[in-house]
């Protein structure tokens, strides 16, 4: 696993607990919890591209950039992705989207973050200490089994 640079906002290992494939043909909504079961994640994924099943564990990273050296990739755009080595090389499923909303968690110590990858939603609920690196901004989601 690569060294944690400040482009990596969050890193977590989660186990898939629920999976709803009934609503759409290509998209399913999975629910997953971290090993310490403090972080709960709900995520829409394209299961054609990244098939999952209940009980599988996922390694999830939220990063503000895909470059390995930690520079921001503002302006470079998605077209230049090929060729040079990037964070994405190490993962199976990579999304780009926006963190757009935060909410209070149930207790005083958790918060919820909502991220949309072009309509594929991700809801993260976890301890504030872990989630405060996230801010309203564009973000990459990287997943591997």
């Amino acid at each position: 696993m690569a060294t944690t640079t400040d482009t990596q906002l969050l890193e977590e290992n989660l186990t898939i607990t629920t999976l709803d494939t009934s609503k759409y043909d290509r998209v399913s909504r999975l629910g997953a919890t971290s090993q310490d079961s403090l972080t709960i994640m709900t995520l829409d994924i394209n299961h054609d591209l990244f098939p999952v099943s209940i009980g599988e564990s996922l390694h999830m990273v939220l990063a503000s950039s895909l470059s390995l050296d930690g520079t921001k990739d503002d302006g470079r755009g998605w077209r230049d992705l090929g060729g040079e080595a990037s964070l994405a090389d190490m993962f199976d499923y990579v999304c780009h989207g926006k963190i757009y909303k935060f909410e209070d968690g149930d207790g005083g110590d958790t918060i919820k973050a909502y991220i949309s990858f072009g309509g594929l939603l991700m809801a993260l609920e976890g301890p504030y200490k872990k989630l405060t690196p996230l801010r309203v901004d564009y973000v990459y989601l990287l997943l591997k089994k």
């Binding site: 998605w78 499923y93 990579v94 999304c95 990858f117 072009g118 309509g119 594929l120 564009y138 990459y140």
Partner: peptide, 12 residues
């Protein structure tokens, strides 16, 4: 930027 970059660049 596409919503899904990998394994395939896809827009929604």
């Amino acid at each position: 930027p596409p919503a899904i970059l990998k394994p395939q660049a896809l827009w929604t």
